[in-house]
């Protein structure tokens, strides 16, 4: 579409004009612009290639809680961008002493040792208490985390820490959206959050590692 106002005396300087004459400011600027553009492109390409070349031996990272640092302060339940949180309590079974009076299961002020809600420490009833056997008159229970119910508040973790500490908090990677900056990590008073290689996304307590090492030693 042509415009009636397009006049040949347009004040816009034409590129072809400047070629023949002495070096004008337009020419100079254009040269600079193109130079910078080319330099920018080269720099971007070099940076990309450099980073890509370096990434060969590296692994993608995901967020995880170091259970030895975690104080189970309860912020995991409230600070995660997900609701309920991607942090869940986990049970490391080889460490659990299968107590009858489980300090991670029962409220400290529980009235009777039943599975009634008011006796439980878990606000959502996410721990399943299963009778396994009775040894010398002592009932043995296994405690399982019902993950869909767990909100990651860590109340059971605090309780269990009085005994063996087999319950602890971990970021569950089937839920975690792996934010660039984990909001719980920012709020964590113990700096327990860190990035770990995605191929080994869960961390064990040192105690648990020791038990596993001992078992391996024996077996």
């Amino acid at each position: 579409m042509s415009c009636p106002m397009h006049s040949p005396e347009s004040p816009r300087p034409e590129k072809s004009d400047s070629r023949s004459g002495p070096l004008t400011s337009v020419d100079r600027r254009q040269f600079l612009t193109e130079g910078v553009r080319a330099a920018g492109a080269v720099l971007l390409g070099a940076g990309a290639v450099g980073l890509a070349a370096h990434s060969g031996e590296k692994e993608p990272m995901v967020w995880q809680i170091d259970p030895d640092l975690c104080t189970a302060c309860g912020r995991c339940a409230t600070e995660c961008v997900l609701d309920p949180s991607a942090v869940k309590a986990v049970q490391f079974y080889p460490l659990c002493a299968m107590c009858d009076v489980c300090t991670g299961y029962f409220d400290p002020n529980h009235r009777e040792r039943t599975t009634a809600a008011e006796n439980q420490i878990c606000p959502t009833g996410a721990i399943r208490r299963v009778l396994v056997a009775e040894q010398a008159g002592v009932p043995r229970f296994e405690y399982h985390i019902d993950e869909p119910l767990c909100i990651g508040c860590g109340k059971c973790v605090v309780g269990c820490a009085m005994m063996n500490g087999s319950l602890y908090l971990q970021v569950r990677h089937d839920r975690c959206c792996n934010c660039n900056q984990c909001t719980i990590a920012l709020a964590c008073p113990a700096q327990a959050f860190r990035r770990v290689p995605a191929s080994r996304p869960y961390l064990l307590k040192r105690k648990a590692q020791a038990i596993l090492a001992a078992k391996e030693h024996q077996g």
Binding site: F92, Y93, V132, Y202
Partner: peptide, 20 residues
Amino acid sequence: RPEIPGYQTPDWQTAYQRAA
């Protein structure tokens, strides 16, 4: 942890290594 005859400790590894 008590040794209970005939009781198999639940497999913690499968539960642990579950990464989406």
